[in-house]
Each structure stands twice: as C-alpha cells, then as structure tokens.
Amino acid sequence: MSDTPVIDTVGLSKVYATGDTPVVALADVTLQVHRGEFVAVVGASGSGKSTFMNLIGLLDRPSHGVLRLDGVDVARLTSNQRAMVRNHKVGFVFQGFNLLRRTSAMENVELPLLYAGVGARARAQAAATALTQVGLGERMGHMPNQLSGGQQQRVAIARALVNQPALLLADEPTGNLDSTTTREILKLFVDLNVNHGITVVMVTHEQDVAAVSRRVVQFKDGHVVMDGPPPETWTPAVEVPWRAAKVQGAA
C-alpha cells in the first residue's frame, strides 16, 4: 500500500467549450506523485498548471482521463463525494489565503473539521495543534485582519493540515508575500515535507521558489514539457537538505 501514488493521472484532459473553438487547457497528462514528494508545478500563465491543480484538488472536473487520489478513482464522483474527498484527502493553500473574514484563526482552522463532523472539543484540540505546528500558537484568537500576510498564510496552511490530508496543494502560496515572508513559508513547507512526511504539490512561477522542491514539473500549452529534479543552475530561496551543498556553494 505504501507505494500507492498519492496522485495518479492517465491521459488527464480538460477542454473548455467556450466560443466557437474548444480550448484545450490540459491535454493528455499522465503523471504520478508518490508519498513524501515535494513537487513544484511551473509554467507560464495559460500553460495549464492551474487547471491541473484545480483538477487534482477536485475543484474542477476533468473532460477525459483517469484521476486517482491516494488510490481512489475520483474522476466520476458525485459532488457530495467530491466534497468528502476534498475534506479528507486534500489540503488547499491559496495565493490569496482565502480565510473567512471576521472569523478567528482558530475557527478558520476548525472549518474542515466542522464539515467532517468532528465534535467541538476535538476540533479545538486539533486546530490548536495545527496552529502551534505552523508557529501561531500565540495568536489563535486573532482575526485575519489582525495578522500579517505571512501569518494569514500560516493560518491557511494550518487549515490545510488540520484534517491530516494525504496531499497539500499550494497554488502560488508565496505570490502575495515579500521575500522574507516567502522564505518563512517555504521553510515551513520544507519542514512539513521532511519532518512530517507530508506530500506537497506547489504551483509557482518563481524560479527560486520552484528550486526549493525535489521535483519540478513544467507545463506548456497543456502538456508536461519537463519533469525532473530542479536544474542545478536554479538557486533555491531557502536551504533544503537535499541541496544543502549547492546552497552553501552559492553562499
């Protein structure tokens, strides 16, 4: 069971039927992501990388192809079943944080547990643990507008992790952050991946962010054009164990 891929796609496609000519956003993508991987998805805008993320995050439905999440075929589930998979197997981190306004950090983190039917006491406990894990143990009662951008993104990460999902999906998680905060968030992702074994798939268009990952998948015009470890020439934004020597060399 341990070698069951977290993400397994065969000929995954998404075609939008807008206007006269259908637009192919994703064409025939066959890809596997295994447990414990840290994948950066890169590509120009319109390359299909966001569509790919929305498909594997079950926010959107594929037009063709097979999509298995953690061994479960999710391409043809009802919307209720999709909601349950989103709830149990996937944690989302967005560029714009997407926290509920005027709702405390604690309650934002509790949200997935609320829909999982977890009782109030267990919810509070799990949310506190998740917030402590992302370094926000002191600010659980704060509202999003009382937190900095980096702190808001940490709340979002805690929310993504609270249900102990198989997969952490991050869509441009550092897009709205300055370079210092970007490094903090990336360190957090590396820590989660290395020390907690969490599988991370992260969309980015920044080379130094992508270089932090263990594997880069590049999209172009709906196809995967490159799949492998980040090129030696890319300098990671933060120190990573699997490229420690390189960073030291660069410094």
Partner: peptide
Amino acid sequence: TREIGIRMAVGAKARD
C-alpha cells in the same frame, strides 16, 4: 460567494 467557495474547497457539501 467567495466564502461559499472557501467552505466548499475545505469540504462543505452542497447540503451544508
């Protein structure tokens, strides 16, 4: 609408 989207993304069913 956005709040609804967030709730759905973290697992709210249509019924919720």
